[in-house]
Design a protein around this nucleic acid. Structure first.
Lengths: 339, 339
DNA sequence: GGTGCCTAGGAAAGCGCTTACCTACGTAAC
DNA sequence: GTTACGTAGGTAAGCGCTTTCCTAGGCACC
């Protein structure tokens, strides 16, 4: 690998001059030298060693992002928003998938810190795990104290600024819709018990139930993994245990789609024999048949706002800023009155 | 930020000793010192500066991956395979999205080189652009000459080892299926003209057409962008221009799903009034109604193989290795005989 | 008790770059 | 013809770490 010294030698200048020419410093340089250096760069196919540059500049610029899984449409959408703002500000973003493993999340905070990122954005549900939450919080605080910026999406229990979707309201909206349609025996496919997103959405549904004089009994709640396969399995379990259900509410669209597939395989029609609703309003929600009634969260927008918070240097020191974002009911074809 | 020197000072040892203890060198160290150093690390919440480490070790370990867009399920699947093998070998992977922009692709090769990655994996279709292809090839060759490893997925025109799916055969299979069902007026929703994937798949379809004594006239081919929206638009254009089509073949599933949506909106039933087929067999292909007849490519497997090639140090110097992977027809409900 | 060898720990030389500071030259002013 | 100043370019000191090489002490052995 050619180094800056090689380039300088070849052009017959000092490394300092070469460096100044290569990354356009404010120092003026003669055109003759400039050309010679640029020619040397071309001939040697020189590419500066990024680590050496970063070390020498000790100037943090990249942004670290930790999500559960970018290939999950939910996070893909958030990431898109994050990237847009980052790119507009000329920042590189480093994306890490925790695959919903708290330990990995801790490790990645450390890794990003090691890579001297200017800010860390943490996206995705929090965990019901006191010990882990405390450990993460400590790490983030240490990072902030040494000049790092932190922004989180979808959790509130941490250091740094936060963008939090109103999951509770979303749960309330979707459940209210079902009760208003006349359903009273609703099965719920919940997400992992460990995630605060699950409990928040469930809490909203419970509030709606109370307001309509109903309940959400534990036997009508199945916990799954926020993915299609486990959604289908949960739907099956629900149907077997509670044959008289008239509606199934899944706490995200993937699981709702899994439920739809299972119902189809059992010959149960939607929404005639069973209503199904989702959560998140992912793009596919429109493409399944029947199109999914769900709750929309402005995911890309949330990403943009979180990155904006993360990049905003001058915090007035008055504690973390919290931005709430609303949820919105999207009526489509998969929910109707019980027959 | 605490540095190694801080830790050493606090523990009353030299930086050398601290370094050896912190990343478990083979040099033996007394337990007493070890404990003191570890305690200092804990108290200072010390995290080694990754750039300084990388610079000092000059030991390449990370792998760079360039894809069109990870959030596209096609690439998400490939990436999953890549990651699996990388993680098994204790390698970090850096993912870059080119968003199908050749210029960005060149820039990313440079960026990854700057970051001293041990290998670069390039996934996604090649481009019909002589100039760009040559430029990329040069860059990759330079990189290889300085000790880097290169592996590409889905193109063959470059330096380095390659894993190439049989796109031509896939096109052949899907078209043959339609002809066998009795269709002869087939509309095609192709991908971007610039991509070799598009031409390869199209070539396979043409071969099938010839074998069945048909043709694929240019007026029945619409070029779109491999995404849902443009797929729907292309389907509309096709329908308007050629009202007597009996089948639509999209060159990927996203566009096929767009077409399905458009047909539904026009009240055209599938497969009774119109057959629709896709390509890639993404997970959603099973969830749309009717479920999509398509061609399966072993995407995750391709990712694994590419990463294996990239990590395999001892090439015998006998030119690039090329691994072909087959395509497979998946029959579902969206294609049937013309009525 | 002296010699030799082994071992734990430290000193210091980089890794490849940036940048504050300095030098030497040319020009302008007197 | 001095002195002063502005400027292009070079010198060298780091950035934070790893690792080679060296030193000093401890032990075994004769």
């Amino acid at each position: 690998m050619a180094t800056l010294a090689d380039v300088a030698r070849r052009a017959g200048v000092s490394p300092a001059t070469a460096s100044r020419i290569i990354n356009g410093s404010s120092k003026p340089v003669t055109d003759a030298l400039r050309e010679r250096v640029l020619a040397a760069v071309e001939e040697l196919q020189y590419v500066p060693n990024a680590h050496a540059q970063l070390l020498a500049r000790s100037h943090r610029s990249a942004i670290g992002v930790i999500v559960h899984d970018v290939s999950d449409p939910y996070f893909a959408e958030i990431t898109r928003g994050l990237q847009r703002v980052a790119t507009d500000n000329g920042r590189l973003v480093i994306i890490c998938n925790s695959y919903r493993d708290p330990i990995k999340e801790l490790e990645y905070v450390e890794l990003l810190r090691a890579h001297q990122v200017a800010a860390i954005v943490l996206a995705g549900s929090g965990y019901h795990d006191e010990e882990f939450t405390k450990a993460l919080d400590t790490k983030l605080h240490v990072y902030e104290r040494t000049g790092g910026r932190v922004a989180v999406i979808g959790r509130h229990e941490h250091a740094g600024d936060a963008v939090v979707p109103d999951n509770e309201m979303g749960g309330y909206l979707i459940a209210s819709e079902l009760y208003a349609l006349g359903h009273d025996r609703i099965g719920v496919i919940a997400g992992p018990k460990l995630l605060t997103t699950t409990t928040d959405r469930l809490a909203g549904m419970r509030r709606a139930a109370r307001e309509h004089g109903h309940k959400l009994p534990a036997r009508r709640i199945e916990y799954a993994d926020f993915d299609r396969g486990s959604g289908a399995a949960a739907a099956a379990a629900l149907l077997d245990a509670e044959p008289d259900l008239t509606a199934i509410a899944a706490l995200n669209d993937s699981m709702a789609i899994g439920a739809l597939a299972l119902l189809r395989s059992r010959g149960i029609t939607v929404p005639d024999q069973m209503s199904v609703v989702g959560f998140d309003d992912m793009p596919v929600a429109r493409d399944v048949t029947p199109a999914l009634t769900t709750v929309r969260l402005p995911l890309a927008d949330m990403g943009e706002r979180a990155m904006t918070l993360a990049l905003d240097e001058h915090r007035d020191g008055q504690g973390p800023r919290i931005e709430e974002v609303g949820a919105e009911l999207v009526r489509r074809a998969s929910a109707g009155p019980p027959r």
